[in-house]
Design a protein around this nucleic acid. Sequence first.
DNA 1: CTACAGCTCCTAGCATGCTACGAACAGTCC
DNA 2: GGACTGTTCGTAGCATGCTAGGAGCTGTAG
Lengths: 242, 242
Amino acid sequence: MADEALELEPLTPFPGRRMEQAIAAVRAAIDDGRMKPGVKYSVYQLAEGLGISRTPVRDALLRLEEVGLIKFEARQGFRILLPQPKEIAEIFAVRLALELPAVRKAATAPDPAALSDALLHQQRLMRDAAAIGNEHEFAHHDLGLHDLILDAADNSRARAIVKTLRETTRLLGANTADKTRTLTDIDDEHTPVIDAIIAGQPDEAEAAMRKHLENTGRLLVAQALRTEASDRSVDEIWSAVV
Amino acid sequence: MADEALELEPLTPFPGRRMEQAIAAVRAAIDDGRMKPGVKYSVYQLAEGLGISRTPVRDALLRLEEVGLIKFEARQGFRILLPQPKEIAEIFAVRLALELPAVRKAATAPDPAALSDALLHQQRLMRDAAAIGNEHEFAHHDLGLHDLILDAADNSRARAIVKTLRETTRLLGANTADKTRTLTDIDDEHTPVIDAIIAGQPDEAEAAMRKHLENTGRLLVAQALRTEASDRSVDEIWSAVV
DNA sequence: CTACAGCTCCTAGCATGCTACGAACAGTCC
DNA sequence: GGACTGTTCGTAGCATGCTAGGAGCTGTAG
């Protein structure tokens, strides 16, 4: 098994720390399904696939383990973790706690003009991606939008936390390819948030963001429940945590 | 400079990953002042001091860098970071966002008896530590108390985040040894929180926790401002973020 | 056919060699 | 004296050797 070199594009000789390139490579591989949760992998495999030595790969994986994306199993390789339904609910509970105050602050920001421009620009990027059905691009800009709002709230620590959480859940959506919501539906949820921020209405912005996050969260919990064929209900899990 | 082997107790041959022992060793060294912010250290130094090789030490430091406790400077060692005032305010903003809902949930917990016992036990431990003036022990149990509340709220993700944040700020208090508040004062702030949880009063519990976190946060911001001799005011920084 | 014992293979984890490169210093030229 | 250049030194980062130990297979006994 060690010689199945796990077809990853070899790292181009590129400046910067190979460790970080390795992190990006693993994330990308998870995104497009070349690496799947549950399957066992080894540092050897990855290092060979990436064309670099084991050390930076190991360092990268240690960082991913820290974030909770993978789990090393002693002397037996590592595994990509699929977030459990409860974990997803927890993640969204945290996101609600952090992003609702953030969107309130954004709606009362000192420099509305610059923020408005940035928000509308981001929205435009998302719509373009939605129009051509490019989910990957869409997800990227969606992350950008939420990041923009967190940035406006001027709390870099909260921003970093949410970014990590969001990247953890992203791979779930990417893998299961749920089509319950089209990209346009998601965009429709963003619109009132953006409008309220621009209009300087914190209450409306918060309410719209809450709705958006709750929809997304419940959907992902439902997906996770389906993949593990559990008989618990979404509401049960959701309301226990949020 | 490389041969100043940085007097750390050598790691006893102990089961478990040496990397994690190294993390603990560095944290401990920061706590009791053997390692100070601003000073430059190297992986070589530490490895020699701990009596192990550079690899696990490096791995440990990479993880600490991830958390924001240290910063590698390319080809020049690493430095322990002293949290900036704004960062501390940000940390407390996140803690408020996460711990206030948590304490509300704890006050409406399904099993009040077990929780009450645990809370009172923890309080007792803290008072004992306060009585003999053992700050280190006190801080440990203080962390335990907050952890207990987060645990009652049943969100392990939020719990882990707060734990990390708290450990990041702890070294500041440990180093500057501010005596504005005695240990008993802190205990006095905890009491209404614990009482309200046991009495099942979410509103009171939240208010008491808010007061406690705001006091602590402002105090630490003030300390950080003093150490860097800034002329900005605590209120200015605090209200901009929280 | 089943239970079990031994063996092989692969792994994480640790130790250590190697290299490119920034910093600080010394020596030199103006 | 002051700017500038060459050199030394120590560092992070990467590659690779080494080891103990668990998983799973294979052959064997019952």
